[in-house]
């Protein structure tokens, strides 16, 4: 898979196909048994710790359940990477954090604790935190899952806005076809350990491949069968006593 700079690339596929694992490979949290992951010219799975940590400072990641540090306030959460990695003075950190929070529309929650935020708001704060150090790329792990329509609209808008305004590369892992298509410049569809389709959203919608068709249109039966493999139905019904 090749993910171009400056664009929003969606990685889609059914549950359990390994989309989130791909993100873990990119971030160096997991090492693949074969093959290489190369980010900005650096081979991630062969990097030493120091190199890896330097690379991670240039990446942002939005986790599925926002993963905000629960003992810190919203402000402190967004300030966390800035404080850890820079020696900037407090007033400057203050301004930076407010800037990021303003971008996601949550400047008014700066004193809230993560537990007080709704799911959608938490995710937006996590986004502000992910872009706190102006990374070159942001990875989104299932950002659309479990959100109400309004929050969903907000996140979709934000992902696109952040990517274009800050010139970043965005990688969105999702199984939400509609939102994924609305937001992505390019889509990779994975299943069964392989890339089973790739292209722009239009190309994917019009693809001939039955696997791509089944996924994009949400067909219950097709290459991925409806029935889980089982012995013959008639003989099970009328056959031996159940064990």
């Amino acid at each position: 898979m090749v993910i171009p700079r400056g664009q929003v690339t969606a990685i889609m596929g059914p549950s359990g196909c390994g989309k989130s694992t791909l993100l873990n490979f990119m971030g160096g949290r997991l090492i693949p048994r074969s093959g290489d992951v190369i980010v900005d010219g650096i081979v991630v799975n062969k990097s030493r710790r120091r190199q890896l940590y330097a690379l991670r400072k240039r990446m942002g990641m939005l986790f599925q359940r926002s993963a905000l540090l629960t003992d810190l306030s919203v402000f402190e959460n967004v300030a966390f990477p800035i404080r850890e990695h820079t020696e900037l003075p407090e007033p400057l950190i203050d301004d930076l954090v407010l800037l990021k929070l303003q971008l996601v529309g949550l400047r008014g929650t700066r004193y809230h604790m993560p537990a007080e935020l709704s799911g959608g708001m938490g995710r937006r704060v996590a986004l502000a935190r992910a872009i706190a150090l102006d990374p070159m790329m942001v990875m989104y792990d299932e950002p659309f899952t479990g959100l109400d329509p309004i929050s969903l609209g907000v996140i979709v808008k934000l992902i696109r806005q952040v990517n274009d305004a800050l010139g970043m590369t965005s990688i969105v892992v999702t199984h939400d076809v509609r939102e994924g298509c609305s937001i992505a410049d390019y889509i990779y569809l994975i299943g069964g350990g392989n890339v089973i389709g790739q292209g722009t959203p239009e190309e994917m919608q019009n693809s001939d491949s039955p696997q791509v068709q089944q996924f994009m249109n949400g067909l219950p039966d097709g290459p991925v069968p409806y029935h889980y493999p089982a012995p013959d139905y008639v003989s099970e019904l009328f056959g031996e006593e159940p064990k």
């Binding site: 971030g27 949290r29 940590y53 330097a54 991670r56 400072k57 990446m59 942002g60 990641m61 986790f63 599925q64 359940r65 993963a67 905000l68 540090l69 629960t70 966390f80 990477p81 850890e84 990695h85 996590a126 935190r129």
Partner: peptide, 17 residues
Amino acid sequence: LMKATEQLAAMEMMAVD
């Protein structure tokens, strides 16, 4: 709990051990 809610993973991704 921090592990279960991915807070530790988030820290790793923010280059904090």
